[in-house]
Design a protein around this nucleic acid. Structure first.
Lengths: 338, 338
DNA sequence: CTGAAAGCGCTAACAT
DNA sequence: ATGTTAGCGCTTTCAG
């Protein structure tokens, strides 16, 4: 492992000059800089991040915290963020805090501390205590999914999205509407489930519809979670004519359950999801579309901007959404028709 | 940011003792160790990774290189690896090298150098030159997907998997069989596409079936890639009765194309995929199932083992696969029936 | 434009 | 069982 000293010797200059040259600092003649660059490449020199980090306090590394890596939504966001970070010369440290234990541990030990120059939190509903812990890091902080004091953020309007979806069902004539809530077994994870649940209720109230508790079923955030949720709905004596699912993956599970029970959407039940998953078009699911990769990229960019400017000016970027009407929603049939 | 010195002073001991105590080294009395631990927690002390790394040469960080984060398959593998790494006290640095430029840059700059204690490469077909570059790091190296000199690896038998899939079609009576190859536009990415392609041809030959070049279509690794591939097959004058798709996501795209053309599987065409994606059951796709998360976890464990043992003993772990027959494959109908 | 020297916060080898 | 000392490899004043 060749160090800066060796490059310096071969170039006949001091380590300081090599350091300056390689990092593009001023105060090095073009000829010297050129020579050093060539020599460094030739010797396959690479800086020791530890040493550089120790000397400067900067790691050129960003911590990204997600509840899961293995959901489509997060893969997309991480991908978007990675691209921006890489382009800016930053590496990405991935932390998952999906279950209670991992999460508690993450915020207690704060493994990012001293390892990263900024932290990006993806779609996690931080408790005030957790947010405080992060603020204590005194680093640029980013958030995708909602807003929080001390964080730059990128987010859609979950309330509006939910309203678009539910009002669409109501406009089609549905009044017996269920929700698959996407709440984790424990109150972990995203804040979106809570917001969407409230907006669901609000939209119902605004249309003089009384919600039914038995039609508000939780669904673990996965396809099979949606499936189980729909199983429960179908086990009810009185059944809804439409379902709003917290996320497309839950909606797909619901479709699967429906089919397993010999029914289908929208004939027996209308279903609307949220996200516009890449499979949603295939299964012909009506949904609320949001740009996903782009949100990851935008959030990463906000962090990079702060890092480059050396400022701590937080910014909030609203992201547009859109109702995409496909074949899984239709007016309710009268019971007699079925 | 409180450092080791402050903890030492408050505890009335030297920094070395604090260092020893906190890292569980022997040579510290239980009482002292206890006191130091409490103090460290109280002061919310956290070690400077840079300083520690500089002094020891160890980063407690593992580099994971993937072609994409946003594909189901990689999300799963990364998730599996992350869990094992975290449990062992290692952080995960994520590098994506999906396109030619990113890949070239990754192997040229080798950003992992000096940043990680080991490197895990997921499902990428490394050129000899790339592998050499990694070997030059002199770190434990892991590989998921195939074997390579100097790497510990975890992989399925792609040849066997392909044979299971194709032979299944042949056993059903198909002889006009196409393949959606999953080769990238450029010959980048996984080695699996090449192996599966060869195994596909071999199986055909073994059954005295002559492959047709126009039935070997490339498909970019995504659902829409599979869709376009099937579009091309359907544009041929003479069409196959069955298709083997390199991956389930390609197969799903193929199904989508089929449906868009007013046809369906297995009535007009049988389709078999590879991976057993979580959606595959829903779309009733016959496929070759492989454990995905488990492979990521196993590979990570091999690396951890080496790190713990301080050895460089590479291990190869074979992973079982299984043909899962679902509704997308059936005997070919005679043309007249259609 | 370049060099010398001090030090970032920790660990390891060597005392005691 | 604990303290002392000397770096790890870079960056950054401060001189020249």
């Amino acid at each position: 492992m060749v160090g800066i000293e060796e490059v310096a010797q071969r170039a006949g200059v001091s380590p300081s000059t090599v350091s300056r040259a390689l990092r593009g600092r001023s105060g090095v003649s073009d000829r010297t800089r050129q020579r050093i660059a060539e020599l460094a490449a030739e010797l396959d020199y690479s800086i020791s991040r530890s040493a550089s980090g120790l000397a400067t306090g900067r790691t050129f590394c960003i911590g990204v915290v997600v509840p899961f890596v293995w959901r489509w939504f997060f893969g997309q966001i991480i991908g978007g963020a990675e691209q921006v970070l890489r382009a800016a010369g930053y590496d990405l440290m991935l932390y998952t805090a999906g279950d209670e234990e991992a999460r508690e541990r993450f915020f207690r030990e704060l493994p990012v501390r001293g390892r990263v120059d900024a932290v990006l939190v993806l779609s996690m509903d931080l408790t005030e205590q957790e947010a405080d812990r992060l603020r204590g890091l005194d680093l640029p902080l980013g958030l995708v999914g909602h807003e929080a004091e001390g964080f730059s953020s990128v987010h859609i309007d979950d309330r509006l999205g939910t309203k678009l979806a539910v009002q669409h069902l109501i406009n089609l004539g549905h009044r017996d509407i269920a929700i698959i809530q996407g709440l984790e077994p424990k109150p972990l994870g995203a804040i979106a489930p809570i917001v969407r649940r409230e907006a669901f209720l609000r939209t119902l109230y605004d249309n003089d519809i009384e919600p039914r508790p038995e039609w508000m079923v939780p669904g673990e955030f996965s396809i099979s979670g949606g499936e189980r949720a729909m199983d429960r709905l179908l086990a009810e004596s009185h059944q809804p004519t439409a379902v709003f699912a917290y996320a497309d993956e839950l909606a797909m599970g619901a479709l699967r359950s429906l089919r397993r029970h010999g029914r289908s959407a929208p004939e027996h039940m209308s279903i609307v999801g949220f996200d516009d998953h890449e499979m949603s078009e295939y299964v012909d699911l009506t949904t609320v579309a949001q740009p996903v990769r782009a949100q990851g990229a935008a959030a990463a960019q906000l962090l990079i901007d702060q890092l480059v400017a050396g400022s701590r000016q937080n910014t909030v970027v609203p992201v547009p959404i859109e109702l995409v009407v496909r074949g899984s929603t239709a007016p309710p049939r009268k019971t007699a028709e079925l």
